[in-house]
Design a protein around this nucleic acid. Structure first.
Lengths: 299, 299
DNA sequence: TTCTGCACTTTGGTCTATTAAAATGCAATT
DNA sequence: AATTGCATTTTAATAGACCAAAGTGCAGAA
């Protein structure tokens, strides 16, 4: 019916990725047994997609199957990225539309028929895309017919505006009374930043660098315990990603960012939330400044 | 930006309400001619729904129709609230679901079939509701089957959390470099607050009082020129409305609010944005305090 | 007892055709 | 020249049938 979420990957594929992460995080070793029900419970689905996920993993030799006994970890194949069926044609079209819009090749108002023809989409696929864009807040249905792009994607200083929102929001996130960062998560965040400084800034893909930055900030928002703040940040980041694709090309500034992230994490670990909040304000300020140095080059 | 589809009222009815507002705001008097095309352009639709809207208004005697010549203002009927087909059954169900959820009568996870049966909805109506709730951020589709309510509606101190987000966001809104409040809008806002103090606080409906408060804050966010801030505020207000229905019963605190609103507007009109920002911070702080006095009574 | 494997049920996504409604073109009228 | 009134075209919502995929119950093996 509605197709709101048309997963970028099928449920079994998602689950198999989650199982691999699970094995890694729980440190399961060769021979460990995994029951379908426990996995299903953990991931909040039924055994059906878990069965299929396990079948995929058997094909990848990550787990071994013994008839009537179940599935066992082999200890192999965990380094493999995952069977990324990332040939998802919808994700590509999604970015294509965003890019076409940012380059001014799509008008403010478009009809579904026009989009369907231009990108050669089925009704269901188009619908899925439109809903996703609407949910992310950069496209909305007009009264009458047609869809309209949100001004977010039109104004020239959109990126700066996102930073000013974050500069208001994120320092406050650290001052939330319910703030509590799980030590496990804290350590993971620290590890990521250290690996970044140890060279991954130069080797990782641009998308991956962006994703890690977002992950740092959203992990803190999640720790705040305030779902409204988390939601606001997530939404702005979603749109920011579209804007950022066109500008974030300077890897060097990630070094300063990583150091500042580490400083903030250090203050949090010591419970100095006020200082952490100040550091966050400074961090976002400095990102904004470095942005202003870059942006003119793009105009 | 809400209203994905299935407008709460049909397009012609929406338009006829807009035409009435238009007549009032532009001060059109008896005999003034209105062309269908100019109205259509102004409201961003085609002439078709405008024609139907005008036909409705003829029935209401707000405009007069002369064959082959067009439509003319009569000067009558403008005080009438509007032909509010507000017997919209969906809006009622929408609030019913929210309320049932807040009262804990609906589980965290529900299937579409269960909702359809419980509220006796057609597939299309249910879908419309689900999309709206999903857009507002308090319900989302799970992987697999079923829908899940967002924690926003579960946590006991939800309302306070919305205020803390606003306390971070709204003072910053007033400091946006692009902030510019149309003098016409400024005067309208001042008028509303004055009328409130002149007695409407005691006579207007609770919904109406709430709507005016929201309108004040969102008008400022709109004036900021930062669509991301506006969007965040709108979203939090949308959910807040659900939470607020259950607690805002104390009319007296609106007096203090109205005076603080006027003070902020005064500072804005004199261009003292920093002072206005401080006043806004104080305003939200005092609202939060008065909230804490009320809330324990409800638990 | 726990868990698997498989049968079976339920859910909701997809497809096609239909239809209501909005957009638009144009001759007639002012 | 501008605008109306109506006819025509375009658009997207809806209904119904179908079916793939997720959820669930249970007998039997471990």
């Amino acid at each position: 019916m509605s197709n709101l979420k048309r997963p970028l990957e099928s449920l079994p594929t998602q689950i198999s990725a989650q199982i691999m992460t699970h094995i890694r995080e729980e440190g399961l070793v060769e021979g460990a047994h995994m029951s379908a029900q426990s996995l299903a419970d953990r991931f909040g689905v039924s055994r059906s997609p878990v069965q299929k996920a396990l079948a995929q993993l058997v094909a990848d030799k990550v787990v071994r199957h013994e008839p009537k006994r179940g599935f066992f970890v082999t200890g192999e194949g965990l380094t493999i990225a995952s069977r990324s069926d990332s040939n998802d044609p919808l994700a590509e079209t999604y970015l294509q539309i965003a890019d076409d819009r940012l380059r001014g090749e799509l008008p403010d108002v478009v009809s579904e028929a026009a989009l369907r023809e231009r990108y050669d989409l089925t009704q269901a696929d188009l619908r899925s895309l439109l809903l996703r864009m609407q949910m992310e807040g950069w496209l909305h249905k007009r009264r009458g017919y047609g869809w309209m792009f949100h001004e977010m994607l039109t104004t020239p200083d959109g990126l700066e505006q996102t930073y000013r929102l974050r500069a208001a929001l994120e320092p406050a996130i650290l001052l939330e009374p319910g703030f509590r960062l799980d030590p496990k998560v804290l350590n993971q965040l620290i590890e990521v930043e250290k690996r970044m400084l140890d060279g991954e800034i130069d080797t990782a893909s641009i998308e991956s660098l962006y994703a890690r930055g977002v992950n740092f900030h959203e992990a803190l928002a999640e720790a705040s315990g305030n779902p409204f703040m988390l939601d606001s940040l997530r939404r702005v980041n979603q749109v920011r990603r579209l804007l950022a694709y066109r500008s974030m090309v300077d890897r060097s500034r990630y070094y300063g960012q990583a150091r500042e992230h580490l400083e903030i994490l250090d203050l949090i670990s010591r419970g100095s939330m006020v200082e952490a909040s100040v550091a966050m304000r400074h961090h976002l300020g400095s990102v904004m400044v470095s942005l202003q140095r870059i942006e003119p080059l793009l105009r």
